[in-house]
């Protein structure tokens, strides 16, 4: 996966040979509806992958399978060497390694921003409250909203809420981050602040899987773009090549629709 010389990436953005996520021949059905078909995907540590595709193509389901929010019926998923099975211990281990951000942020409205960020570290990681708060403030500063720490989610704008959600995930010190359409519910001027946060995260070498239609973001930080349709991975390539010369007809159609205007 060689980067071009013009790439602005920092040295940290290099990809190691270590495998972070390994998905083999994974299938999933909702009832009789075959939502994911024979998915094979290997993610190396430090990789930043953007998944795109028409709605209903199974891209959200794919990343939700990785931290067991959805159950897959056939095939295997191995995250950081831990196989995803029905064993609760493995699920706990994987969830503590994998952070996730949702389209609708899903902050806990009854807790302050700070409490949102410390809840899981305190109850799952068993970190002393003061220490958890220190960590939370560190990440809130990183997403540039430390001054909102004592407010409630309802008092924040959408962009701020999504940045809190990112900080909340980071407080668990994940090695992999999943993003499920993190900017789809945001006003245009708020999309940038969230993307900036994600770019910053990518530059620090976080392994990222991101379902998004932000093609600018894909061009800037992704080292691989995956196109999904009808529950299958149709095409994957480096962003440059992916956007310039898509090989598959369906990819071409999709790109012309979202880049056409």
């Amino acid at each position: 996966m060689a980067m071009t010389d013009t790439d602005t990436a920092t040295p940290q953005m290099e990809i190691s040979d270590e495998v972070a996520i390994e998905i083999r021949n994974m299938n999933k059905w909702y009832g009789t509806f075959h939502v994911l078909r024979d998915i094979d995907l290997t993610v190396h540590r430090g990789e930043r992958i953007v998944i795109c595709g028409p709605s209903g193509s199974g891209k959200s389901t794919l990343i939700r399978c990785i931290n067991a929010l959805e159950e897959h019926q056939r095939g295997s998923i191995v995250v950081d060497g831990t196989p995803l099975s029905s064993d609760l211990k493995n699920i706990d281990k994987i969830r503590s390694e994998v952070g996730m951000c949702f389209q609708h942020f899903n902050l806990f409205p009854h807790l302050t921003i700070l409490e949102n960020c410390t809840l899981a570290p305190i109850w799952v990681r068993k970190i002393p409250k003061r220490e958890a708060e220190k960590t939370a403030m560190y990440f809130l500063e990183k997403v540039k909203i430390p001054d909102q720490a004592n407010k409630y989610p309802g008092q924040l704008s959408g962009g701020q809420q999504q940045r809190v959600a990112i900080a909340r995930s980071l407080c668990m010190r994940p090695r992999i981050m999943l993003f499920d359409e993190p900017t789809s519910a945001l006003d245009p001027e708020m999309i940038k602040e969230v993307l900036d946060t994600m770019i910053q995260l990518a530059e620090e070498g976080m392994t990222m899987l991101c379902v998004t239609h932000e093609m600018g973001f894909a061009r800037q930080v992704a080292n691989r773009v995956i196109f999904m349709d009808d529950g299958q991975i149709v095409e994957q390539n480096e962003p440059e090549a992916f956007f310039k010369s898509p090989r598959n007809e369906r990819t071409r159609l999709f790109l012309s629709q979202i880049l056409g205007h």
Binding site: L69, R95, F102, N106, H110, L119, A120, V124, R168, S169
Partner: peptide, 24 residues
């Protein structure tokens, strides 16, 4: 989404109920 976010953070179902769902 609330349950999912809590589960994604690694909270067990009992804690999800007592810390996130029931208070709301």
């Amino acid at each position: 989404g609330q349950t999912e976010a809590a589960a994604a953070l690694g909270l067990r179902p009992g804690r999800v109920m007592s810390l996130v769902v029931l208070p709301q």
